[in-house]
């Protein structure tokens, strides 16, 4: 169980952002396109140079090997990208992973399918499984259900909630949908003009 503490993290956009997410808690983050939400998540995953401090429990980003840090914080980018030809080239075929496959409506045969034949929604769901498959200790989700229909989106919401609760990990969930943030998050922050403002309080869940 580790708390995610972000202190004055500054991306190329030049404004510092700070926030704290408790273990097992989900923070909903909204903001107009171009407000810097994705860049913020990328900085937390140490994909871009940034200033400030990011800590997950005892671990600090700057003092942790980059590959280890990225496995710890589990960033799911808004656009999923693939490097191998088949789905299975991207996963460890562990039992836990196959369980996730079932949870999001895939079967074992999906593993041998060419990635190019999948729809964007399928790819998005597989990307979520891929992110979870390395057993991250925090989740940074950049519009995880943007390409999904309602049923799939609900499945994803349920799966993430389950993972967050059982593993007691902090989650940051970027979404353009205030209703979704209401459903999945414990606190809702809105990013505007380089400042985080607390949106109306959401229902406590979890």
């Amino acid at each position: 169980m580790a708390r995610l503490v972000v202190e004055s993290v500054t991306t190329v956009l030049g404004f510092p952002l700070s926030l704290t997410v408790e273990p097992g808690e989900c923070l909903g983050l909204s903001g107009a396109s171009g407000s810097g939400k994705s860049l913020f998540l990328r900085a937390l995953a140490d994909l871009d140079p940034h200033q400030g401090k990011v800590c997950l429990g005892e671990m600090e980003c700057a003092n942790t090997a980059p590959d280890q840090w990225r496995r710890l914080v589990g960033l799911l980018p808004a656009e999923s990208a693939w490097w191998g030809a088949q789905v299975q080239d991207h996963f460890d075929p562990s039992p836990a992973c196959l369980f996730l496959f079932e949870q999001l409506g895939f079967s074992a045969t999906t593993l041998t399918q060419p990635v190019q034949q999948l729809s964007s929604g399928e790819r998005q769901r597989l990307a979520i499984i891929r992110t979870l498959s390395v057993n991250p200790r925090a989740l940074l989700l950049d519009e995880p259900t943007a390409n999904l229909d309602k049923t799939s989106a609900e499945r994803v919401e349920k799966l993430i909630a389950h993972y967050r609760e059982t593993q007691q990990i902090p989650v940051i969930w970027v979404s353009h949908d205030p209703q979704q943030i209401k459903r999945v998050a414990h606190q809702h922050w809105h990013l505007q003009n380089g400042r985080l403002q607390r949106a109306q309080p959401t229902d406590q869940r979890g």
Binding site: L47, D67, R70, L75, E79, W83, R130
Partner: peptide, 22 residues
């Protein structure tokens, strides 16, 4: 062109060498 795929591998904890090898 493959920036997304390379970064996806970095996010999986792959080293830069593995990510850019292909």
């Amino acid at each position: 062109r493959e920036r997304g795929a390379i970064e996806a591998r970095l996010l999986m904890g792959h080293s830069w060498q593995m990510a850019i090898q292909p």
